[in-house]
Design a protein around this nucleic acid. Structure first.
Lengths: 339, 339
DNA sequence: TTGTACGCGTTATCAC
DNA sequence: GTGATAACGCGTACAA
């Protein structure tokens, strides 16, 4: 008899499928079939279920994956530098919705992985060892991370349009262009004619799309009415100040995020412009802050819960080998006091 | 020959240790030894390293774990309800420090898992499949989750003292009692004699300890000077209002967190009390908000980076089978304008 | 120092 | 419908 081998660290002591099979008086195959909902005789099924409860069996995910089972875990790739990984409340909220939605499908784990910096690459290497499908947030227009992933045939689902990768990675996006268009059209319907815009970052799809929607609806386009922002409160303040200077006659400002809109509101107040009498202000996202400002913000709501559900279903499809595809969620204009 | 079996889903196409061995002209054992830093001949080592780079080999974590290797992943258990999982910026910041610290040890953090509610239990079940060691935040005084974990002999390291489990779970904590004591002693050294306190939640170790430190230093104890808070801004406002009503003659307020202290500051302003002239205000945590208030907050700093490093080393020790143990980090009084 | 072979726990296939 | 067993990729004890 040759050498006993393979004794790594002590076994965790957890019940295995063999223990269950023994307790139920059936073979491991039958237990596995019960576990996975495959056809099994009635008597066997009951015996197995009793044994399952009795032994407190918990499946070993590593063994499942090694044997080729569908992943029950998902990696979460946020394309920002590591120090801003969990810093965005909006992203965290969506992440939470995704956790819930995935949980309902018996899928878990969301490995927070940062984006493209040098240390981030190391973390991604670690993540790669798990071979999980990827849920990606804040995909930039070009990213080595994304190229790497699609090159390794990792199933990826993006939150937002993965510009340049639409055929390789599935995605869910909201109709940013349409939302911005609706907002600006609404402002015009209320008689506003000189409508300024504080854009989002131009290297993010949302930034590009919301500006496009603005241009769709604004009528005559005046460069003096466009200032670029960065989705931050401070950025909103600065941008509004510039806008007020460049185009003192403006009667409305559309900010591409509620957080920036809050900054716009304060800048207007400091500049002595009344909102909404002198200047109407529109936001985007229907973030919590939208009802925390005075006046409350007219904004564009994205249905985040359903959004997360769609991300989950897209991910499941992708795991099961379907081709990449995109879905677009509708948006809703929410009118409050700022217009 | 009996049936070919075990063909799950298509192989991911990743290079395996066998591919590397073939490319290097050595056996898999040798490759494994190189990978794990075990003694290997010089020629073999170089050949393997070349093959490693050439094949783009990435270890399969699931196979590693199944074979008994040390876990390269850690589960993150936050003992709050699911909807508050990523909602606390302080926790997120520490989480990030832990991510960094663990990453330096080639360990990746994984799986934000919520605490004790009914749906949370389901998520923990999922997490259990991975059999990861656990990094625990906000451990309440009594928790089925913790009992479950220690019962299953899962290595657990807590952030803060795991009251009632000190012998079963390792932990890192800062000296909350001493920090509070220093703060109150400092206030007294500046001539303050009627010092109120806004405590943290009394079912959290930090809340209990910081109040104890207050009692250590305050001298005569007056119940009218104690109001319980919940670590939130709004809670700080409410508590300060009550304090000002109950003890109009107070000349200082120690809030058990900076966020609450910010609320105290605003409540004082509304009540017409000048800070620090009429009322000195002390906080705790040295959170970002501590330098965002007017005046800036005198507070107690916890060395979070080193704290995270200690959490990591405690975790490693625990994984390697050492007994549970606790370490206490020192704190530092930071004096700013609010006193 | 290096090669060989077993075992980790699960899934899926084959034969009954 | 059920049992037996190969295969997943890796770590390691043992033999050479």
């Amino acid at each position: 008899m040759s050498g006993r081998a393979g004794a790594g660290r002590p076994r965790s002591g957890r019940a295995t499928i063999y223990d269950v099979a023994r307790a139920a008086g059936v073979s491991v195959g039958t237990v596995s079939r019960v576990l996975n909902g495959h056809p099994v005789g009635d008597a066997s099924r009951r015996a197995v279920q009793r044994a399952l409860a009795g032994t407190g069996y918990v499946p070993n995910e590593h063994a499942r994956r090694l044997a080729g089972a569908r992943p029950a875990t998902v990696a979460f790739l946020h394309c920002v530098s590591g120090d801003r990984l969990l810093a965005d409340p909006n992203v965290n909220a969506l992440l939470l919705d995704c956790l819930r939605s995935l949980g309902e499908q018996q899928i878990m784990m969301v490995t927070p992985v940062p984006g493209d910096g040098p240390p981030e690459v190391a973390v991604r290497m670690l993540a790669a060892r798990l071979d999980d499908p990827v849920l990606m947030f804040s995909a930039p227009l070009a990213s080595p991370a994304v190229d790497d992933l699609v090159g390794r045939h990792v199933p990826v689902v993006a939150c937002g349009t993965p510009l340049g990768h639409e055929r390789r990675v599935s995605y869910v996006t909201s109709d940013d262009r349409e939302g911005a268009r609706q907002m600006v059209a609404y402002l015009r319907s209320r008689g506003r004619r000189r409508i300024g815009v504080v854009t989002g970052p131009m290297d993010l799809p949302g930034g590009v799309e919301r500006l496009a929607g603005y241009r769709d609806a604004v009528g005559a386009f005046d460069p003096a009415l466009v200032v670029h922002g960065d989705y931050t409160y401070a950025g909103g303040v600065t941008a509004a100040e510039r806008l007020l200077r460049q185009a003192p006659d403006l009667d409305a400002i559309f900010a591409a995020s509620d957080v920036m809109a809050a900054g716009v509101l304060d800048a207007c107040a400091r500049a002595g412009r009344r909102v909404p009498e002198d200047v109407a202000v529109g936001g985007y996202d229907d973030a919590p802050i939208a009802v925390g400002t005075t006046p409350q913000l007219t904004t564009v709501r994205i249905p985040w819960r359903r959004y997360a559900d769609r991300l989950t279903s897209q991910l499941l499809r992708r795991i099961d080998g379907d081709d990449a595809s995109g879905v677009v969620m509708p948006v809703e204009l929410i009118v409050r006091g700022s217009t």
